[in-house]
């Protein structure tokens, strides 16, 4: 496990495709950060907004509840404090995997905020031991599935001019449910091929097998 926690030493050369994606991304990132700041400033009470230009996938699921090392309260962050999903899950728009935010991101706020809470003290302990928590996987797709977050975010968020950016969580909710009403996330959508396929049909997504199977 230890190997996965640290970075390789040395310096970045180029991204996987060896293309020039860095510059473009930086622009995108700063643009989105600006949007996020604007969104956070503009208080909005619209919790159940529809996502324009999109048909949400149908299907529900009741997964097992997965315990986590720290009972992370999504509701406190996303609902009460209205932090945008993409503020913490920044990888979702930059990579195929959304990833868990790095511990440094948590500590960015929690070195000063709510430091008296036991959960935060536990987090601080991880941070000081230079050991990120080992989270338990909640949303998983089979190994033969190639799912990429970034293209879905592009389709439903970045390219979706009619979407209010504070409603990003409604897009995430397509597949993850109303996480902002949960503490730790539970799986409430089936994430089966039929579930994906219905959404692809309704939203003109690609239907070629090799788009999603690897």
């Amino acid at each position: 496990m230890s190997v996965l926690q640290h970075l390789p030493l040395g310096r970045f050369i180029e991204a996987a495709s060896r293309g020039s994606r860095q510059t473009k991304q930086t622009v995108q990132v700063s643009f989105i950060v600006m949007l996020l700041m604007a969104a956070m400033a503009l208080f909005s009470a619209n919790v159940n907004a529809e996502v324009p230009n999109a048909v949400p996938p149908e299907g529900t699921y009741s997964g097992i509840h997965v315990e986590q090392p720290i009972e992370f309260p999504h509701d406190t962050h996303a609902d009460i404090n209205e932090i945008n999903c993409m503020y913490c899950h920044t990888y979702a728009r930059r990579s195929k995997v959304a990833g868990i935010p790095p511990t440094s991101k948590c500590m960015g706020c929690h070195s000063v905020i709510a430091t008296d809470k036991p959960r935060i003290q536990k987090l601080t302990e991880y941070w000081e031991n230079k050991q990120p928590p080992l989270w338990n996987k909640v949303h998983d797709v089979p190994d033969f599935v190639h799912f990429t977050h970034e293209k879905h975010i592009k389709r439903f968020v970045i390219d979706n001019e009619d979407l209010e950016v504070e409603n990003v969580s409604e897009v995430c909710a397509f597949c993850h449910g109303e996480v902002k009403k949960m503490t730790v996330a539970d799986k409430v959508k089936p994430l089966t091929m039929g579930f994906c396929q219905r959404c692809h049909q309704a939203n003109d997504g690609p239907s070629d097998c090799w788009h999603c199977h690897k």
Partner: peptide, 15 residues
């Protein structure tokens, strides 16, 4: 190497 093709196509699409 369809996974390489896929990565490059994704990148191009993102850009």
């Amino acid at each position: 190497c369809v996974q390489r093709i896929r990565t490059v196509k994704d990148t191009a699409r993102m850009e």
